[in-house]
């Protein structure tokens, strides 16, 4: 059996709201293989984003274990191991599309020429070859999300975590973005965990899971 890119076991997370303890995750188990795409659906407030934060190592579970390719997650390996796509794109407004994509490599300290060539290639792959010098404010919502996808792929991660990447896009644009994301992940054998409300988008992934009552089913 091949090693899982992502393996989470018994993840539990509780938040305090005033005097109340809210148990958001009650023992989540999840394993994702290389090249596999997994959709996670659930009602608003069901803890999908919390789960994604735990899987990305940005937040720590109260109980449970997480392994990235068999290893304990560490902050200094996150940038190389996984890419993230957010609902609100989170592009840096002062940087053009190319510089936004390159920022992921800059943070890793990847040399300029090689990084630049890859960023140009990725922008071409997401259909924005002609918009490389455009600032985020000069791009449409769909174009911004495509830049964000290129940025997530910049460091050739083994896993992409996408948190409702079509949440701010119209249906047609959202469809295109999901098709692009799935296509690129398949092409590069990158595992994908996609959090979405959209049943049609979830249906395009290789596996669908529902987060309900703090447990993945």
């Amino acid at each position: 059996m091949s090693e899982h890119v992502l393996a989470a076991t018994g993840l539990r997370k509780t938040y305090l709201s005033g005097d109340r303890r809210i148990e958001v995750l009650r023992g989540v188990d999840l394993a994702v293989a290389a090249g596999e795409s997994v959709a996670i659906r659930g009602e608003s407030g069901s803890g999908k984003s919390t789960l994604l934060n735990l899987l990305s190592g940005l937040d720590a579970p109260d109980i449970g274990s997480l392994r990235w390719a068999g290893r304990t997650p560490a902050a200094d390996t996150r940038a190389r191991f996984l890419g993230m796509v957010f609902q609100s794109f989170y592009l840096i407004p002062e940087l053009d599309a190319l510089a936004n994509v390159l920022m992921a490599a800059r943070i890793l300290g990847v040399p300029g020429a090689a990084g630049r060539a890859r960023a140009v290639e990725l922008l071409a792959k997401v259909g924005l070859a002609g918009r490389a010098t455009h600032l985020p404010t000069q791009l449409s919502g769909g174009e911004r999300q495509r830049v964000a996808i290129a940025r997530a792929l910049m460091n050739s991660p083994r896993l992409i975590l996408a948190d409702e990447p079509t949440g701010n896009l119209d249906e047609a644009t959202g469809d295109n973005v999901i098709a692009l994301l799935l296509g690129l992940c398949a092409e590069t054998q990158t595992a994908l965990v996609l959090v979405t409300h959209n049943a049609a988008h979830a249906a395009k992934t290789s596996r669908q899971l529902f987060l309900h009552d703090g447990v993945l089913k």
């Binding site: 940005l58 200094d76 940038a79 989170y90």
Partner: peptide
């Protein structure tokens, strides 16, 4: 604030 969060998510360290 959100950009700073993004930089952290991309691997930027607090001292950077």
């Amino acid at each position: 604030t959100r950009e700073i969060g993004l930089l952290g998510a991309l691997g930027g360290r607090p001292r950077q």
